[in-house]
């Protein structure tokens, strides 16, 4: 398959820390508009993969192309984010001192240069968009509260809201339902499926119920490379996968 038509194209990506190979010649392709779930045991390289894509960690070897042409390995985090790659962290990271509204305003797609932000004031469209996201994430009643005072689940949702405000082409979502109740988990799954219509999404998750709920193509990582790929049912039947992960 040609790299040209893909949204994200990883080929032979390796990273090691002090001799430990976190990623071992990892190859992965995400198509425009696709939603992909990534599963794997602890230490399989899921978070490192996200770090490599978003520029936090530089790979030792390998190619990472975005939209088939932009080489991500030479770019810094902000440049990658501005290309249209958004990331939600495993531990919800919101700006605790800022209000919910300000968190969304900061994330909103707008010029990112210092002098532009110095003179920025929210337009009518900007405000409408923030209102809309507040509705989607059910945070409207909390809009003027500092993000630090939100509950864990609300913070997760705020962070998803921030991703929406960024309006990226590709969302990387790391364990979005960790620490959520069953009801919240279900709502989150719906929310992500809604988003997937307009954006490509990569979800890293441990929770099998949640992954089943998403009903998308699954990639199983093991020791830094791809072990199996396919529907959840087909990978669940894969003997290797059962050995390293599911069967335990």
């Amino acid at each position: 398959m040609s790299a040209q038509d893909t949204l994200l194209y990883l080929d032979g990506v390796s990273v090691s820390f002090d001799g430990f190979r976190a990623l071992n010649s990892l190859s992965l392709v995400i198509e425009p508009g696709e939603m992909r779930a990534i599963i794997g045991p602890n230490g399989a390289g899921k978070t490192t993969m996200m770090d490599v894509i978003t520029g936090k960690t530089r790979p030792d070897t390998g190619t990472i192309l975005f939209e088939g042409r932009t080489d991500l390995t030479s770019l810094r985090e902000p440049a990658i984010a501005n290309l249209g790659i958004g990331r939600k962290f495993q531990r919800p990271t919101v700006f605790e001192m800022h209000t919910v509204w300000d968190n969304l305003e900061l994330s909103l797609k707008a010029p990112r240069r210092p002098l532009k932000t110095l003179t920025y004031s929210a337009t009518k469209e900007d405000r409408a968009r923030i209102e809309e996201i507040l509705d989607i994430t059910r945070l409207s009643p909390r809009r003027d509260r500092p993000a630090g005072s939100l509950s864990h689940g609300e913070k997760q949702w705020l962070e998803i809201g921030m991703l929406l405000a960024q309006d990226p082409k590709l969302l990387l979502v790391d364990e979005p339902v960790a620490g959520m109740t069953d009801a919240e988990t279900e709502q989150t799954a719906h929310l992500l499926k809604d988003i997937a219509g307009k954006h490509s999404v990569i979800v890293v998750e441990h929770d099998m119920v949640f992954v089943r709920e998403l009903g998308v193509k699954v990639t199983v990582l093991h020791e830094g490379s791809v072990l199996a790929e396919g529907s959840l049912d087909s990978v669940s039947a894969n003997k290797q996968v059962i050995d390293v992960y599911l069967g335990r």
Binding site: T54, K56, R76, E77, P78, A81, N82, G86, R87, F89, T93, V94, F95, E96, M97, H98, D102, E105, L106, S107, R112, R113, P114, T117, L118, T119, Y120, S121, M162, Q166
Partner: peptide
């Protein structure tokens, strides 16, 4: 300066700098 959006970015940098980078802000310049 502090009340502007730039000021909000600065406070965000103070509290969680790497998160600000992933939002696409060149925090060095701020």
């Amino acid at each position: 300066v502090v009340a502007s959006k730039l000021g909000k970015v600065l406070i965000a940098v103070r509290d969680a700098e790497s998160r600000v980078r992933f939002l696409g802000y060149e925090t060095d310049r701020y």
